[in-house]
């Protein structure tokens, strides 16, 4: 009788173990995913191929800039978040093509493609060692995604076994400016 119970127990135990392993074993995408490098705003983070420092976050309802000789103004259903940052290649020339605003709720906002041709956009030009680029990343986000976000910077949108700088952005930010002219922005 106790033998039967033991057999049943072993079976249940094995089933529980298998289900647990199936549920909680990290998947391939997770194992070969980004290698996080965490830091705060104002801190220089040095990854495998580049170093990054985010200095300031600004919010705006509208943005004005000059692209290809034309004055452009952009508005949004949410709010524009501008991150002023410095990037440098280390130790070899490299393209750092991905900046993502990860909201506190976990949504990932890729840098807005609505600003092509705007001055000093980061991610446009290749980075060179010894020549840090100071510039701007522009995100378009709903207002509820502003607080407590993280800036993710990497060579590509889904880095595989490569650095992803994860910079904690300020928990609270000023109310959005009605309009920011990108040509009048203070980068230093």
């Amino acid at each position: 009788m106790s033998g039967a119970f033991a057999k049943l127990g072993a079976l249940v135990l094995a089933a529980v173990l298998l289900v647990g392993m199936q549920r909680y074993t990290p998947g391939y995408a997770e194992i070969t995913g980004p290698i996080p490098l965490t830091g705060k705003i104002g801190e220089t983070l040095t990854g495998r191929t580049f170093s990054v420092r985010a200095d300031k976050v600004l919010l705006a309802e509208r943005l004005r800039f000059k692209a290809y000789g034309r004055e452009v103004e952009r508005d949004t259903g949410g709010v524009f978040a501008l991150v002023i940052a410095a990037l440098e290649a280390q130790p070899a020339s490299v393209n750092v093509g991905s900046a993502i605003w990860r909201s506190a709720q976990g949504a990932r906002f890729v840098a807005s493609p609505r600003f092509q041709g705007a001055p000093r956009l980061l991610g446009t030009d290749r980075l060179e060692p010894g020549l840090p680029q100071r510039g701007l990343v522009i995100f378009e986000i709903p207002r509820e995604s502003v607080a407590g976000a993280t800036l993710l910077v990497a060579a590509s949108r889904w880095p595989r076994l490569d650095t992803q700088a994860e910079i904690a952005l300020p928990a609270t930010l000023d109310t959005p400016a009605p309009l920011i002219d990108l040509s009048e922005l203070a980068y230093e």
Binding site: G78, V110, S112
Partner: peptide, 18 residues
């Protein structure tokens, strides 16, 4: 076309209908 910009639509951000 993104009507807000009268330019080609290249991305839709989460939670921001257009």
């Amino acid at each position: 076309w993104l009507m807000r910009d009268k330019a080609m639509l290249s991305a839709l951000q989460p939670g921001l209908p257009e």
